[in-house]
Every structure is written in C-alpha cells, then in structure tokens.
Nucleic acid binder design. Sequence first.
DNA 1: TTGTATGCGTTATCAC
DNA 2: GTGATAACGCATACAA
Lengths: 345, 345
Amino acid sequence: MIEELGGDAAKRRPATILDVAKTANVAVGTVSRYLNGYTIRRGNREQIEAAIEALNYKRNAVAAAMKSELSHLVGLLVPTFDEFHGVLLEHLSRAIRRDGRALLIYCHGADPKIMREALDYFATQRIDALIMAGAEEVYDRVDELIGSGLPVVFYNNDLKGLPADRVFVENRKASQRAVRHLLDLGHRRIAILSGDQHDSSGLERYLGYVDALGERGIPVDPQYVVQGGWTMLGGADGVKRLLELEEPPTAIFSANYPMTVGALRCLKEQGRKVPGEISLVSFDDVPLFGLHEPGITAVAQPVEGIAEAMANVIAARLARPDPRASRAIILDCDIILRGSARPLA
Amino acid sequence: MIEELGGDAAKRRPATILDVAKTANVAVGTVSRYLNGYTIRRGNREQIEAAIEALNYKRNAVAAAMKSELSHLVGLLVPTFDEFHGVLLEHLSRAIRRDGRALLIYCHGADPKIMREALDYFATQRIDALIMAGAEEVYDRVDELIGSGLPVVFYNNDLKGLPADRVFVENRKASQRAVRHLLDLGHRRIAILSGDQHDSSGLERYLGYVDALGERGIPVDPQYVVQGGWTMLGGADGVKRLLELEEPPTAIFSANYPMTVGALRCLKEQGRKVPGEISLVSFDDVPLFGLHEPGITAVAQPVEGIAEAMANVIAARLARPDPRASRAIILDCDIILRGSARPLA
DNA sequence: TTGTATGCGTTATCAC
DNA sequence: GTGATAACGCATACAA
C-alpha cells in the first residue's frame, strides 16, 4: 500500500536558544539559565516562556550534551531479553526516567564481538553510566571505561576487582533455602541444573546447593550436577541426562527460568510426572508458574527492588562522583511454595 | 588548561579528532574522511590508525550528531514490557544495530502524561526515528513530530491519517481463523475476551471474531463480548463474568497474552476444566503455553519478522530522506494447535 | 586527495 | 542577575 505523504510538511529549521533569546529580548545566557532551573527575574521568565511557546522551542540535548559532557543516557548491556529482563526493563526505565535520563539498550547474545561493539558504541555515545551483567570477555574494556570515569553497575555476574557499583541478590542463600526445602521434604538424590559457573550467579547458586547438602551431611554427587548453560535447550538436555542415570534424582533444582522451561519440556516429553515422580524447584518466578499444573515452586527475585537499587546507585554516583567508595547492594529473595515439590514417597 | 582535582585517577581529557590529526601528521578533515569510510591515501590511513590506537581515540558521537543532525538513536515508545515486547526487543535491538544504531527506550504504562514526556524527551534527544504503538492521546504531538521530519513507525495500534510507516500483523484474519477453529470443533457459544477496541488491534481482533461467527450465520451475542482491557486482571475479571452467565460460553477466544493468563487463573480458581468444560484459544504465543496442561492453542505473531520489518522500514526511509510514500507492512500469523480447544461434547 | 576555516546549539566564564 | 563571547568536537564547503 502506497500513500501520498502530506506535502505541506513544513520542515523548517527548528528554533534555537538564540531565537528564543531574541524573541524574549534577553541574552542566550539568561535563557540557558532558565532552562537549567536557575533563578531568573520574573519579567524575563515570563517573556522566555512566551517565546518558547510561540516558537515551539525544544532544547537540543545533543548540543547540551556536547558542552556539559552529560548525555542523560544510561547504557544497558544485556545478554538476552528473557522474562527477567523484560520485567527489569519495565521498572528500570521508570526509575531511570525519574532523574531525567533514558535507557540506551544493547543486547549481545553472549557474543564477545558484540559486547565489544556495544562498549565502543556506548563510549562513542558518551553515556553517563553503564549497567551490565559482567562478562570476563570484556574485563579489560570495562576496566578501561571505568578508568575513564564512567560509572558502572554490575548485576547478575560480577567482575571481581573492578571499582564499580553492584546490585545483586542473595543467590547463595536463596538457593540454599530452595534446596533445603527439597531436603525437608525427604529428598536425598537432589540434582542441580546449574548455570554457567564462570558467572558469579551461576557459581553462587551452585554453592547454595552445596551448602544445603552439606548442612545435612550429604555429599555432593557429581553425576547430579549438570550444566545447563542458562538456556532452555541446556535445561532440557541436562534433565535428559539425569533421567538416563541408573539412579535418577528424585528432585531437581533449576538455577534459572529458561532452564526450568527446558526441564519441564523434557520431563513432559519423557512422560515423567511432576511432582509425582520427580520434584522441581526453580530459581526465577514468572506469572505462568502459578498456573502450571502443578504450580512451580520458585525463588522470586525482587526485580523491582533491583531496578530501584540500580537507579539509586547511579543517581547517587552521578550526583557525587566519589571514585573511592563503591556500593554493593545485595537484595533478598522470596521462595514461593507451590505444588512442584512434594514429600518423597 | 584546568586540571581535574585529585591527581591519582588518570582522568585525562579524552583524545579528539584534532589530537589524532596532529599525531598522524595529517589534517582533521582527512581523519574525518577516514572515520566516515571515504578513501584515504594508504600511508595516511596507516598513520591515522596508529594514532587512533596510540591515543585510544573514541569518536565523539555527540559532536558528530550535532553537525550531521544524525544521532543514530531510534526511539522506542512502548506501553509495557510484556512477553511480546521482550521478544520484540531481542530481535529489534539486533536488527537496528546492523545499521549502526541503537534503541532509546521509554515505557509509558498507558499514562498520557508520560507519553507526552517521552515524545518531548525524544524530540530533545534528536532521535533519527521513532517506533511506537499509536495512542490517540498524543495524536497531535506525533503529527507535529512527523511534520518536523521525524520518520515514525506504528505497530500494534494505528493512528489513522498520519503520514507514517506501519508494521502490523493480520489481526483480523488470524483472529477469524482462531474462532473458526472453535466453530469447527462444534462450539456455538463462543465468547471473546477483547482488548481495548479503541486500539486498532483490539478492534480488528474483535472484527475477526465477528467475521468468523458471521460466516456460520451465528449472531454476535453481546453478553459473550467482554472487555478485558489487554490486562491480566481484566482477563480474569472478564472470565469471571462469563462464568456467571445463565448460559456460559463453551469456548473463549482471548485477544492477547496477559488476558489469557488472567483467564487461566480465573478458570483454575473456579475449578473449571480446560478444555473439559471450556475451550480456550489465545492470541499471542509463549513457550510456556506448550508446557501448560493442556497446551494452549494460540495465534503466534511473527515477532522476529515484525522487528526485521521495522528495522528495514527505518533504514529505507533514513537512506532516502524524502520518499513521498508511506509503507504499510502486514505480516501473517500462525495458529498453533495444542490441547486447550477440543470438540464440544 | 588534502588542508583550512567556519558553523552546529548549548553551556560556562567573565565582566557588568 | 544579566549580557557578550569563548569554547565543546566534529563535518563540510572551499581552495589548493
């Protein structure tokens, strides 16, 4: 379908601060002061406001950024837009907006080349701050960025040793509680569908699993520790291997949402009843888990709290640049008991 | 020049194109030409590359944007980050990146004030293009933006009459097929959980429902048309009302994903079996629908195709500044048959 | 092809 | 407070 565009689109040069100053009979400096919230003589203010209205003036943030060195852009570098990131984005964009900034997003899909590309792009765009899940592959680049004065906030995966702020959840304790719950139900052969243990969250969730077993004096059986690589396919594959064992586990702790979906799919395909034949607890909670039959017992991350913390940390650092103190905010998780974990028969 | 206080952090002023030119013994113009991909004498190119490396030069996109009037930013204004938008973002950010641009996102949560704020912010940031679900509340502002030369792409909800590009799916036909499927199974009392019919997608999905009934000579019974307002709560509430009818429907067509979740929750709470007592078909598909017991029969939008189309439309329009034609791309949907709809007993 | 000079719109720095 | 003016870093005519 081809339509004619209105030809009367008056594409005039947009008004500048100079035009406003001229129309309002004041100096550009005065207009700039007005725009930036400084006190202005009342008469002038009214004239400026009238001029802005009349000229339909919109301040050019690009030019402002060039002078002030502040772009009011916060870069967000994520590996993927799974359910967790969707919800995070919802809250984060809201929280960031409160301070007059917006989110510039880049999704790298675990590709190191794209990670570097993203970091370069962000540097190029002169973002005010960067939020990212740490990735070893770009340790040096991030270090460099921080060295150049860019505030960075890590989440999900830490890059130890870098002078940055951090927002994490109690991955280890929450996982421990989740596995302890399975132990309380009488399970002893408990498997973990682990995320990448090079990621701090992957490691900590695994360590929580180890902790819980250790509390009850149960040794960690390597055959029950399978790597799911955070992905749905990895989760399905991992469960498949578990079911092929001579002594399959009676319960599984899955370390994130996509792997849980994969696990459920595999279990369904293999005709294994949850929780009849095998119990399941998931890290990460989504609305549909409550509707699944049975409901999926899950660790719920405080996503809104994470977003708020990120925004606050950034706002604080931008307001008072203090390279020495780096903040680490660690939030608690809830465990939501549903029907996917039941006492061992 | 003025030195930053605190001499320990090597927070030197970043290198500029001028520094590069000086180090490479060429003129700034030459460096600029190199940066923008024009041909350069080989010796110079090598010198420039060496200088960039040595100085760790990162081009300042802000300054470049000011001159070229191109920010390489694409604004994305969404109502909310539901599952659909998560997947969309995944593909869109990738597609947009191919052209060297990134996504500047803003989430308005159906608040007209925030919509206006977002539009102002985008204008201020001098974005190159805008992707948004149309909203009547800001018709005039969007019109103004388009008038000023900003390319706009609508999705999900159209704002008729505006000279913009459009990427939509065959909402009406896909809905018709979905309802036809229920009719084929013998259902006659079919309800629709409708989205906001002021949204073009809401209206078209409703019209598809009407079409399907009309084909079979079945009149539309108003009591079977309930407004769910696109939300989970609205969906739950709508189903509740349906179940209280003297003659409840034997099948429900839900017009989007959140409403389907709400519907499932309500049906579960009320102890109604799906599909034993009531059949269900959903617009929008998510991985978990396949794992639900029963699997949810759903209309799958080609989200990747939507993202690709958006990126292409923008790239095309930005490449050829004043094509007097607006493009409307309409994509087909698949219907995925699972177990939530079964023949009427 | 290369070098020079000018301007983009804003903020910052002065005197006043 | 206000007004005039110098940057900010880059792109681009224009002359060479």
